[in-house]
Each structure stands twice: as C-alpha cells, then as structure tokens.
C-alpha cells in the first residue's frame, strides 16, 4: 500500500531505520496500526529537514509539548480513510490527532500482542 506522495518525497538516504540504542524492536509511531499499544521510548529531531514548515527541532518540541515524551503510554485508536492518515492516538490520558509524517520521530516499543 501507501502511494503517499509526501512520504515518497523523502530521499532514501534520510530513512535511517536505526532503533534507539538499548531498545530493540522499537518502531516509528508513523508505522503503527490501530490497536497498537506501547510505550514511547524516544522522540527525535532528525527527519526530513526542509520538508516541514518548521525545522525538526521545532517539530520535536511541539511533540514533546503535546505529551509525546519518553515513558508515556501510547495507543493508536483510529486512522483516516485515505492513505490511513492522519492517526488518532491516546497519549497517557489525552487524545491527539496527528499526521503520520509528523509522527515519524516518535519511537514506540509495542506491547506483545
């Protein structure tokens, strides 16, 4: 799936798939599916600089301010009908809607299903 034009604009070299050190099996929140639950293990500032209206550092700060911090419980609740985007997540006790592209720097260690 995913003929998502925005996602395809990211150069391959920028797609570093290195999970946070010491946390094996963590995945990007942007790749999670509804029903996935877990703990946020890392919130980075690295993806596609220049592609966003704000720099990655700013995006990271906004994510942190919305409660996407290391240690927070997270659950993906819903996704949009087109390109499965955006996603609605529950972070601790708050519900937040965000686009998958903005969720790429959030790494989640999923619970065993």
């Amino acid at each position: 799936m995913d003929p998502d034009p925005v996602h395809d604009m990211i150069p391959e070299t920028a797609k570093v798939e290195i999970a946070p050190a010491g946390v094996e099996g963590a995945v990007r929140l942007s790749e999670a599916k509804p029903g996935d639950r877990g703990v946020i293990v890392d919130v980075r500032a690295e993806r596609h600089a220049g592609d966003h209206g704000v720099d990655v550092g700013e995006l990271q700060r906004r994510l942190l301010e919305f409660g996407f911090v290391e240690g927070a419980r997270i659950e993906v609740m819903f996704e949009g009908a087109i390109w499965r985007d955006p996603i609605a997540v529950r972070v601790d006790d708050m519900r937040i809607g965000l686009r998958r592209r903005d969720a790429e720097d959030v790494w989640v260690l999923l619970d065993a299903r």
Binding site: V6, G50, D51, H52, G53, V54, L59, R62, L63, F66, P86, A88, M94, R95, I96, G97, L98, R99, D102
Partner: peptide
C-alpha cells in the same frame, strides 16, 4: 513551497 505545517491537534473529551 515546503511550508507544510505539522498537524497536531488535541481531540478533546
């Protein structure tokens, strides 16, 4: 160009 703002929004109770 390129100025796509992040879309982050609280879904209130």
């Amino acid at each position: 160009r390129g100025a796509v703002e992040p879309f982050l929004m609280e879904l209130p109770a």
